[in-house]
């Protein structure tokens, strides 16, 4: 966080650009906004009996789900079917980005950002006294795909509006069930993020459910595209319920939730929505999961094994920051 001692823009009504031009002397890194400093909960130590590296990894999992989902949704900006939907999708993306930033900062506080500060783009290496980039920025812009811990659903191409709605319906139903349980997490940051996220995700799920009804129970064409969208995201759903070892260990100490517990609640939402929307629950095999191993994770985003789609997302998200590693404004 950098101080910002410019004069009040309201006193410069004649030219709002004056206020921008007289901003900080110390400069801000062009790609970061600074968040981790001065946030009460982020500095809290790991709860007693909780492995610090596990907690950092879990914060990254929760953060990366939201960060990559947010980046994907932001791709709709200025392209949605109607202005209202453009605004809605951008709002959902913004909520998820906010959740991601706090969790990334928490992971950074627990040491997760340090290995990624040493790249050729690291501002600290080339200029004495340059800005130290915040943990959340280092983790967002300077990690490569294998270091991202998100479930693969969130990195998949959103396709058309129908597929996007199916994607939001599944993602928000799952994350809402997860976050509601995490309000009781022993980690104060995870619990605090969850407390806010529950309210936000309730709106996201309502939005997706209502569009699922309108499209599913709409015209022949909208029905067909909504069903096709649901079919397309379905192979990525199974992974949402497969626990990673980190999740299991942290669930045992009251910090995390075993995602297998979330299946019934997500199913209940689908059972409520799909029949009214005249849609059929898909029966398609899960991506990357070998038959007969449904309870064992053999592959997945939580381990850093991603689909090729993540590369596209990261290229868009990271390339500018990497091309201009010391840009300030």
């Amino acid at each position: 966080m950098h101080s910002h001692d410019d004069t009040n823009p309201a006193e410069h009504d004649d030219n709002v650009y004056d206020a921008l031009a007289t901003a900080d002397d110390d400069g801000r890194w062009a790609f970061g906004t600074g968040f981790d400093a001065g946030t009460a909960e982020i500095d809290a130590p790991a709860p007693e009996g909780v492995d610090r590296d596990d907690l950092a990894a879990y914060c990254l999992m929760l953060a990366d789900d939201a960060l990559i989902a947010s980046q994907r949704l932001a791709g709709w900006t200025a392209k949605a079917p109607e202005l209202e939907e453009d605004v809605a999708l951008a709002n959902i993306a913004l909520d998820l980005l906010g959740q991601a930033r706090v969790l990334l900062s928490r992971a950074g506080h627990l040491g997760a950002a340090e290995p990624f500060r040493a790249g050729p783009w690291d501002a600290q290496r080339s200029g004495a006294g340059r800005l130290r980039q915040d943990d959340e920025d280092v983790l967002t812009y300077f990690r490569d795909d294998r270091a991202f811990r998100n479930v693969t659903l969130v990195e998949t191409d959103l396709g058309d509006f129908g597929r996007t709605i199916a994607w939001i319906l599944l993602l928000s139903s799952w994350r809402l069930a997860l976050m509601q349980r995490l309000t009781a997490s022993r980690d104060p940051v995870i619990a605090a993020v969850a407390g806010k996220a529950v309210k936000e995700l309730t709106y996201h799920r309502d939005y997706a459910a209502q569009w699922t009804l309108r499209l599913g129970d709409g015209t022949e064409l909208s029905h067909a595209r909504m069903q096709a969208g649901l079919d397309a995201v379905w192979p990525f759903v199974e992974e949402l319920f497969l626990p990673h070892d980190v999740e299991r260990r942290l669930a045992d100490v009251g910090v995390a939730v075993d995602p297998a517990e979330l299946r019934a609640e997500v199913d209940a939402v689908l059972e409520q929505v799909l029949p009214v929307a005249t849609l059929t629950r898909p029966e398609r095999p899960a991506v990357g999961l070998v038959g007969g191993q449904r309870h064992r994770r053999s592959w997945g985003g939580r381990d850093g094994v991603h689909t090729e789609s993540l590369g596209t997302v990261l290229a868009v998200m990271q390339s500018l920051a990497r091309a201009h590693p010391e840009a300030t404004w």
Partner: peptide
């Protein structure tokens, strides 16, 4: 010094 807190949620 301006500090941020998340809990209890607004």
């Amino acid at each position: 010094e301006v500090r941020t807190t998340f809990s209890p949620p607004w």
